[in-house]
């Protein structure tokens, strides 16, 4: 009976792996196919003509570099900004009495803003942004993504700060340290790994975000996910180019995921499961 379960589980794992890896395999081989082969039938499981054509075209014809720069500028700035603004918020909601029962409620309220479908807020934001001329600008997008990352960062970091032993802070207070000194000299160094991991996770979510980007950009500030979505339309199918662009843009995301393996589960379940 025991061996039956073992064999069944190996078969299940093999099938699941095949299911997960197949699209990734298709992605990689298609990116090395020339245009005509990517569109031929039957599809080839190994490129008959291995070529870097699609990769060159992504840069020369599709302007990959400018999308990459937009993605980098917007993602990195918004993650940095939300960490800088988020740490004091998380610290305040974890260690300082804001009001009776307020800490928990404010933290949960901030988190709940992230639970609503983004489209609910993007439409009015678009109207406001078009009045303020913020559509398709770096500041507009960086602010938007900062607001989307903040609830996540505050909620997770607050959880980490709450786990620290209270005595450390209390002895610092006795020694006459100010709130800001405690935050910068004690809390930040102690939660440093968590801050880095949370920042990398926010990077991942922002890097891949599409809904906001597609509505708040028009021409100059489009990000990589928008580029990826633009290869396949009703009349055009640049599959090999699309796959090459995807392969290139997924590299930072994979690095981010592998760097945060341990914190990933905790982050994505909003702190409920400690990975």
């Amino acid at each position: 009976m025991r061996s039956f379960y073992t064999i069944a589980s190996y078969i299940f794992l093999a099938l699941t792996l095949a299911f997960i890896l197949f699209p990734i395999y298709v992605l990689i081989i298609t990116s090395f196919k020339p245009f005509t082969e990517a569109f031929s039938y039957p599809p080839t499981l190994w490129p008959r003509n291995l070529t870097l054509e699609a990769y060159f075209k992504v840069f020369t014809h599709w302007g990959f570099t400018s999308y990459l720069i937009n993605s980098l500028v917007i993602t990195v700035s918004s993650v940095l900004l939300s960490v800088i603004v988020g740490i004091p918020m998380a610290y305040c909601l974890a260690s300082i009495k804001v009001g009776k029962n307020w800490n928990e409620n404010i933290a949960f309220f901030i988190l709940s803003l992230r639970l609503l479908p983004p489209i609910v807020g993007i439409l009015p934001l678009y109207v406001i942004y078009s009045h303020l001329k913020l559509v398709d600008t770096y500041p507009g997008l960086i602010l938007a993504y900062t607001a989307f990352n903040l609830p996540f960062i505050v909620w997770i970091l607050r959880g980490f700060i709450l786990e620290l032993p209270r005595e450390i802070e209390e002895s610092a207070v006795v020694d006459g340290a100010s709130v800001f000194q405690i935050m910068i000299k004690i809390i930040v160094p102690l939660t440093y790994p968590a801050i880095i991991a949370t920042a990398i996770l926010s990077f991942l979510l922002t890097w891949n975000e599409f809904t906001t980007a597609v509505f708040l950009t028009a021409q100059y500030r489009k990000t990589l996910p928008i580029l990826i979505s633009s290869f396949i339309g009703d009349l055009q199918f640049y599959w090999n180019d699309m796959c090459a662009a995807t392969v290139l843009s997924i590299i930072p995301a994979i690095i981010a995921v592998l760097l945060t393996q341990r914190q990933l589960v905790r982050g994505l379940t909003l702190g409920a499961v400690k990975g």
Partner: peptide
């Protein structure tokens, strides 16, 4: 590590690749 790859992929990219696979004319 392999299980984490789909999580790293932008949903737009996931949708596009499956569109290549599902394409009625010459998909896998």
């Amino acid at each position: 590590g392999i299980l984490l790859i789909p999580l790293a992929m932008a949903p737009v990219a996931a949708g596009s690749i499956w569109r290549v696979i599902f394409n009625p004319m010459n998909g896998f």
